[in-house]
Amino acid sequence: MAKIVISPSKYIQGNGELNRIKDHVNHLGNSFFVIISKSGMERFGQKIKESFGNEGNLYFEIFNGECSKNEINRLRKILEEKKSDVVIGIGGGKIHDTAKAVAYYEKMPVVIVPTIASTDAPCSALSVLYTDDGMFEEYLLLPKNPDIVLIDNESVANAPARLLVAGMGDALATYFEARASKSSNSKTMAGGYTTEAAMALAKLCYDTLLNEGLKAKLAIEQKVPTKAVENIIEANTYLSGIGFESGGLAAAHAIHNGFTAIEETHNLYHGEKVAFGVLVQLVLENADLDEIEEVLSFCDSIGLPITLEELNIKEVSKEKIMEVAELSCVPGETIHNMPFEVTKEEVYAAILTADALGREYRK
């Protein structure tokens, strides 16, 4: 029974590191294919060009907005035309996952440059694929983690505070899902079983969120990269990334995947839905009320949703919630890593109970 930890080959985080991107990636190849959003190009394009000295071995392609098979195939065709040999994904989680998938299919190195800290996607050997309409489709498991993850604290500090908060919602699940996976002796995304190192990182991630989360949110609202912001970026990105992949996923992310079927939730960020999924998982576990209240208090302090209404579900119908529950429990979903059997009826009940706990807390 193997225990496995996987991670990026190199993780770099500091102030102004985007100005030095060429120095960090130049050894990987000769021609660089950059996947970036339109707004990202406006914010960072010139800085990246200047780092490379405006050389002709740099090509930018604007991301269409969804990590779907169609978008991955579109980008692969352009990459082949440009004859690039390194993929760089600059932006948020869906760009990261798309860049990783493109690099995997084209058998080349990949560099991930988060300009926000809204998910734990950057460090993982995983791409989450959606339909073109934004509905969860499948996990694409990759044979290796990114070659380099490069984070410029100043770039992240200039992003909207809501994005950092969403990252904390995603990171919030790390410890609880790893704990459940270890208890059930389930295999992790790394292909083995949970290590003590992964559990320690997952617990450190949770403790960092509780100790630094509110301070980081307040600082980033002022667009300043304080020590608390730096620590939360590391928690959201590295601690959560290694913690979930080598520690294990369980109910919280499966419930997030279920909620993607409800159109009203599509304008919410991944981590905002995951945070509510944590509450649902704790209800499924019949966790101590003190622990549930600690999570409720944390979510409330930084602005993560704790009710269905805050997930934009204004009218709670049995049909909608049961659809979420059913999708959460499909064969192969990570909810089956819980240390007990979970049925759609139990998930339905847990969703409504989590909502009731959130509404009671709001009083």
Rank of each mutant, 00 (worst) to 15 (best):
T98G: 06
A99N: 09
Y104R: 06
Y105V: 04
E106S: 13
M108I: 15
P109E: 00
V110L: 09
V111I: 11
V111Q: 01
V113S: 07
P114C: 05
T115Q: 06
T115G: 03
T115F: 11
I116R: 06
A117K: 10
A117Q: 13
S118H: 02
A121N: 04
A121R: 03
A125T: 01
L126W: 08
V128G: 01
L129N: 02
Y130L: 02
T131S: 15
T131W: 10
D132I: 14
D132V: 14
M135K: 15
F136W: 09
F136E: 11
F136G: 14
E137Q: 15
L140M: 15
L140F: 08
L140G: 04
L141E: 04
L142V: 07
P146G: 03
P146T: 02
D147R: 01
I148Q: 02
I148N: 02
I151W: 00
D152R: 02
E154M: 05
E154P: 00
S155H: 00
P160A: 13
P160L: 08
R162I: 13
V165T: 12
M168T: 07
G169H: 11
D170R: 05
A171T: 03
A173L: 06
A173P: 07
T174C: 05
Y175N: 08
Y175D: 05
F176D: 08
A178N: 11
A178K: 12
R179C: 09
R179I: 01
A180T: 08
A180C: 15
S181M: 03
K182N: 15
K182C: 08
S184L: 03
S186C: 13
K187N: 02
K187P: 00
M189E: 04
M189G: 01
A190L: 14
G191S: 12
T194R: 08
